[in-house]
Computed example of a mutant assay.
Amino acid sequence: MRYVAPARSSVDPAVFERPPLAAWNEYAALLRGEHWPTVKTLDALLPLAQRERFVAQTRAVLDDGLHYEQRIHAHGAIATREANWHDLFNALAWLRYPAIKRALNAQQVAEIALMGPSTRSRPQYAMTHFDEAGVLVAVRDPALLALWDAHDWHGLFWRRREAWLDGSIHAEVFGHALLEHALTEGKLLVGKALVFACAAGDDPAGDDASVTARCAAGIADGSLLRDPLQLRPLPLSGIPGWHPDNGAEAFHRDAECYQPLREGRSYPPPVPDIASPRS
Rank of each mutant, 00 (worst) to 15 (best):
D245L: 15
L178Q: 02
P260M: 09
R262N: 09
G116P: 06
S237I: 01
H151F: 05
L179P: 00
D208E: 10
G264E: 05
E82H: 12
S223H: 13
L92G: 00
D166L: 08
A110V: 04
R159V: 11
N25P: 07
P20F: 07
S9C: 09
A255V: 07
Y27N: 04
T128V: 12
D43M: 04
R214P: 01
A250F: 04
L234C: 05
E249K: 12
D227S: 15
A200H: 10
K192E: 11
A23M: 10
R96C: 09
H170Q: 14
A255P: 10
A103K: 02
Y125C: 12
S276E: 13
W148T: 02
K192I: 05
G238H: 03
P270C: 06
H154A: 11
W85F: 06
E185L: 14
H170K: 09
M127K: 14
L31K: 00
V39S: 00
D87H: 13
V173A: 03
T119K: 13
W94G: 00
S237T: 08
P142F: 02
A250M: 08
L231I: 12
L45T: 03
R122V: 05
P240E: 08
D273A: 03
A217R: 14
H75A: 10
L236R: 06
I169N: 00
R226W: 07
V11Q: 06
A7F: 06
Y27F: 15
P270H: 03
G247V: 09
L194D: 00
S223A: 12
E34R: 15
A193G: 05
D254W: 06
R53N: 04
H35M: 10
Q124V: 06
L114T: 11
S237G: 10
E34Q: 14
H75N: 14
L179M: 13
S118E: 15
A60T: 14
D131L: 12
H151T: 08
A28T: 15
D64E: 14
L178H: 02
D63Y: 09
W164E: 03
A138N: 06
A99D: 14
A275Y: 05
V190R: 03
H129F: 11
V15L: 07
P277Y: 05
I112N: 00
S266I: 10
H75E: 11
L21F: 08
L62Y: 07
P117A: 13
L229W: 05
S121A: 02
P244C: 02
W242V: 01
A197N: 01
Q124L: 13
L95K: 00
H67R: 15
A177F: 11
A209R: 15
E17W: 07
